[in-house]
Amino acid sequence: MENSPNLLYKNINRKRGIVFAVSIFISIAAFLADICIGSSGMSITDIIETLLAGPNGETVNTLIVWSIRLPMTLTCVFVGSSLALSGLQVQTITNNPLASPYTLGISAGASFGAAISITFGFTIAGVQWIGTAILAFLFAIAVSMTIFFIGKYRGLNTNTLILTGIIMNFFFTALQQYLQYSASAEVAQIIQNWSFGNLSRASWASVWVSAGILIIGFIILTKFTWKLTAITAGEERAKSLGINVERLRIYTFVICAFLIAGAVGFIGTVAFVGLVAPHCARLLVGEDQRFLIPVTTVLGSLIMLVAASTAKLMSNGSMLPVGIITSIVGVPFLFVLLMREGKGK
């Protein structure tokens, strides 16, 4: 009886639950570590005291923790989670392990949209970040829809997908370079920083917006867990099980575009988090989206936190853009995936 498939399945799910709990725990540790790392040399007890004292203190520590470090660290958490979650879902709906916001060029589109807004001071109701986020979203959705239609008429095999990504990345990089070239030195510097993903632009506004989008996106996606899981069992099979695959793809692309815009619209392009996190999560908890969605999300924030802490430690005070770190780690990862994919075919 102990070999009953039913019990084995429950056992495996229990282990997946434990993996989730452990990953949350490690992320919290990384979160605290990231707040502690900085040029002012505060001790952990100082930090915890300041955190517990709330944002209304008068000390220098309060200013450092509540106005500088905490927004940065929280932005890290939500940006990492959003990129990871959208990476997972574009992989799911394109049925391709090499897909991610960055490799498909969706991040590049969103980043360009945001750059336009910064260059021309585009505001909505007098608020710049709304304009930035909306332009980032519009470009993210434009790239997503292009990919959707290419997929619909040509099919999304690895070649088409990677080539589409390269084209999108070339195109938007060129446009961004043009903006940079024609902008004033000051704006050009901002755009330059943009293409690396720079946390120094983090603020409480970026925290609230990216958190809001993440939470809404997360909740909607969890409603689709079983359908998304069924898509990983093959498009034709999912259709034969009665799932409207096309509609699910469109919904998911729109949610991902929001997530990507929320992440990229504030700190710029952060490469590869959306590729690495879902793969690690899959290795840990398998393909069941009930576990895959939460674990991917948590791992995304963990990767970003580690990258941000590393960036702070390496640059010793000045802000090394976090996107540089994720790229250095992400490129070899993509290489390994490509080699594996090639062998599989």
């Binding site: 034709e236 099979r237 899959r282």
Partner: peptide, 12 residues
């Protein structure tokens, strides 16, 4: 067909 899913038999 060529289906590369890692879903387990039970999950499928």
């Amino acid at each position: 067909g060529a289906l590369s899913t890692k879903l387990t038999v039970f999950e499928m």
